[in-house]
Design a protein around this nucleic acid. Structure first.
Lengths: 133, 133
DNA sequence: AAAATACCTACTGTTTTAGTTGGTATTTAA
DNA sequence: TTAAATACCAACTAAAACAGTAGGTATTTT
């Protein structure tokens, strides 16, 4: 189990935006330089973040991205949910935490798996972007 | 982010063993039937679990697998650590929770990532196989 | 002797990942 | 008004990981 580079890079980039919250825009070019991340890849990541209404953008020479909400209002869970393509930790549990087993097995395992998923989610919901500055 | 089928199947199978702890061996054939998991795949999974000394086995007609420790002494973290091939959630953090960034960047991000990793690990360490029966 | 089990090694199709490539559109500053 | 800097968009691709399959051998009980 590993977070994708999308998620990792996204988190790192959002930390940059948090530091400049209420001040400047942050350009992807500057993040690319500072964090050694491919500019084109960052563009894709920020496309997702913008669609999810987590960041807003301005074009042009002084353009760039900024957070839509305060850092303390953005949870790590929220970010991961946007960037990670599949946040269902187990096959037999769907996005809403309900059992969705192919074989309609009546094993007790799904209960545990649901608890594991919930525990991790709660942990991530308890952490915000502010918890780092 | 998703747990591999190895981990998911392994957890489900270990639940079976927990139920029979102190009583019978559990054969992989019976798990395969009950849980609709490929027998050959289960064999691979249990090979890892045995190497890690989490289960022991007996051959022959009444053979099968059983837990080496009590269910309450086996944490979910322990199981996942064995079955999941890579438990480093982020690239820039190694197994021991230390920063290992290719570019030796001095960004503050790694601190957060370490906290995320630790929070999830602690959650999983707090759950045992017993928490389901 | 047969059946049931564990145990071992190698192979493989599919999917996902981690980007790359090649552009267009908009805004600012010289 | 032109150049530079930015965001924005869509398609492609090599490599790695995943999720098994295949074909056996070894041991123990009935």
């Amino acid at each position: 189990m590993k977070f994708s580079t999308r998620t990792t890079y996204g988190l790192r980039a959002l930390i940059k935006l948090s530091e400049k919250f209420g001040k400047n825009n942050v350009s992807l070019a500057s993040i690319s330089r500072d964090e050694h991340i491919s500019l084109k890849y960052l563009e894709q990541i920020f496309s997702s973040l913008k669609k999810a209404n987590l960041v807003k953008s301005e074009k042009g020479a002084t353009g760039g991205y900024s957070l839509v909400k305060k850092p303390e209002e953005i949870t790590i869970f929220e970010i991961i949910e946007i960037l990670e393509k599949d946040m269902n930790l187990f096959r037999c549990i769907d996005q809403h935490g309900k059992v969705n087993c192919n074989f309609k097995c009546n094993c007790g395992a799904t209960k545990v798996l649901i608890n594991v998923q919930r525990a991790i989610n709660d942990t991530l919901k308890g952490m915000s972007l502010k918890d780092l500055i």
